[in-house]
């Protein structure tokens, strides 16, 4: 009787476990295989090569730079999106005339494919015929065309801004869900005690929103870390690899230059980084909740 009882939970998760194994473990397994082998450009294995793919990567200055830039990219986009989304969600949570329309407008960028958004931005940022330059010129803010995508620093800054813009809808949605779960009587009670709006925000809203901020942080970090279209469409990681992040570096290695072994190694390293980040973060968040 007891043995049957212990078996039931495992039986119940078995189908999803099999499914997960098929769609997660199997590809990761073949990635490991490709990454540790000498591979030709069509993915045919030519034998074990003592982690030569990994050592080639770490000897490559472009890879190291892309690694750091990926960190910067993730922190800036996720951080920026969180900072923008909290006030936006607070405003959209208030009852005001036209709120529904405002919510729809905010969600729209989410409904458009990321690649299309990036293509539109590429046109808008064109130095000679782009919309942004002519708009700024029309407003009298600039007197000469700005070459937004010509140099790495400026191009990267613009990419981060686009990244924040497209991350905000999803993040706001999570926060709106969080805000609607906060009971209204808490605010009423604190208002009776004479709490100001700021105090309410700091001592009621923020603590109760925390689990949602955590979810948004983890999910966004995973999405943004792996995000390919914005950077690829606007600059392809250029000029001279100065806006490359790990995914665009991986794509060039794998499909342009044909080094599938090194490209697989990059993706394993990315997987490892994300896994470690997620484990540490979930642990920290759990501990906080217990405390």
């Amino acid at each position: 009787m007891t043995s049957r009882q212990t078996a039931i939970p495992y039986l119940l998760i078995l189908p999803s476990l099999v499914l997960a194994a098929a769609i997660i473990f199997w590809p990761v397994g073949s990635l490991i295989e490709i990454a540790t082998n000498d591979v030709n450009r069509f993915g045919q294995l030519k034998g074990w090569n003592d982690f030569a793919n990994f050592s080639a990567l770490f000897a490559n200055a472009d890879f190291i730079q892309a690694l750091w830039r990926t960190g910067l990219w993730t922190v800036l986009v996720v951080g920026g999106a969180l900072l923008v989304s909290v006030p936006v969600a607070l405003i959209l949570n208030e009852d005001f005339y036209g709120r529904d329309i405002a919510r729809v407008i905010l969600m729209l960028p989410w409904a458009v494919s990321l690649t299309m958004t990036a293509v539109v931005w590429r046109w808008a940022l064109n130095g000679e015929s782009g919309m942004l330059n002519s708009a700024l010129m029309g407003l009298g803010i600039i007197s000469e065309n700005v070459q937004w995508l010509a140099s790495g620093d400026l191009a990267f800054a613009m990419q981060v801004l686009i990244g924040i813009l497209v991350t905000v809808p999803f993040t706001t949605t999570i926060f709106l869900g969080g805000l609607s779960s906060i009971p209204q009587d808490l605010y009423e009670a604190s208002a009776l005690e004479g709490a100001s709006r700021l105090q309410q925000f700091r001592h009621i809203t923020l603590p109760l929103l925390k689990p949602f901020i955590n979810i948004a942080l983890v999910l966004n970090t995973i999405y943004v870390f792996n995000s390919f279209p914005i950077i690829w469409v606007t600059t392809q990681g250029g000029p001279a690899n100065s806006t490359d992040i790990l995914v665009t570096h991986l794509y060039k290695l794998g499909f342009r230059i044909g080094k599938l072994g090194e490209a697989s190694a990059v993706s394993l390293i990315m997987l490892a980084i994300l896994l470690i980040f997620t484990i540490i973060y979930v642990r920290l968040a759990m501990k906080e909740r217990e405390a």
Binding site: N145, L149, T235, A240
Partner: peptide, 15 residues
């Protein structure tokens, strides 16, 4: 044209 490193072949053709 200014900012040559932001002009692909298609961009120059458009100009």
């Amino acid at each position: 044209q200014p900012g040559v490193t932001s002009f692909s072949r298609e961009d120059v053709q458009n100009l």
